[in-house]
Amino acid sequence: MKKILITALVSTLAATTIYASEIIKGSGASFPYSVYQKWIKAYNKETGIKIDYIKKGSSKGIKDAKARAVDFAGTDKPLSPRALKAAGLYQFPAVVGAITMGYNLPEVKDLKLSRKAIVAIAAGKVKFWDDKVIAEANPNIKLPHKALTFVHRADGSGTTYNFTYFLSKVSKGWRKAYGAKKSLSWPGDQHIGGKTNSGVAALLKQTTYSVGYIDYADAKNNDIKMAAIQNKAGNYIKPTLKSFQIAASKAKLDPKKDFYAIIADPSGADSYPILAATFILVPSEKPQANKDVTKFYRWCYSDGQEIAKDLGFVPLPKSLITKIETYWDAKGIK
């Protein structure tokens, strides 16, 4: 009896260690979590390789990567080449996502929001929909004199970080007062918070005369109307996969600088402005493990594109993928 128990114990232990060694572990950013999840599932189906990605938030991901607790970490905020060197990490972009301004105005279609209007709404300075700051951009629409409700994320999230990052790029006052944060105490008294993107989507759908920031996929899946946003060139751009791709191609992601750049508010006449890239960090001293990670991401860049599109993420432009491949080559992690 004892013997059987011991054999059972030993074999279980052995099984778990073998099992554990096959898993690639990752943690970090929550903004790309949905697309990573789908990629991991599809990749596992195709290759049998298991990958675990836990969404802890970018800052915890960076901490994990520095502590070598994971094989790769996701972060929405890229690290500078100097910080990377100090921590012994390599960095490359994984995917680009867009954030939209969803709104619920029963009688209005094709709403346009200027950069100023978005900052004003987020700062709680717009009380009614027919406020000058919104009306200016919409001369052909009769806006109702109804109280405006701003819907935001209640939980800390990469979506909030990227949205407030955009606001900080647009407005000096916003940058000084709030900056880019994953959660903040929103000003004004006409706002409500929803838990997770689906919570925000539900609130936008149920609350008439509301407006809020939400990722493209959730807005699309819930049939939420999305406003055209004024970009840097002054044009109003509707959120579509095409305008996201145009914007992504303008991003200055340079392998010499370890792709250190935030791509929000890109230039170009047809670029959609509220855009964010999310990055992967890998430890430099583990080339073998890194090869497994880069293999996975190479698969994502090619076979995973359709999955990304379905979720409202933007596949990286071809030119950028070539750059990333060269970067991997140079670092010996391809």
Partner: peptide, 15 residues
């Protein structure tokens, strides 16, 4: 290009 956020103090002090 880079905007300070709440984590920077911890993450890249010199940066």
């Amino acid at each position: 290009d880079m905007i300070l956020d709440e984590d920077d103090a911890i993450l890249d002090e010199d940066d």
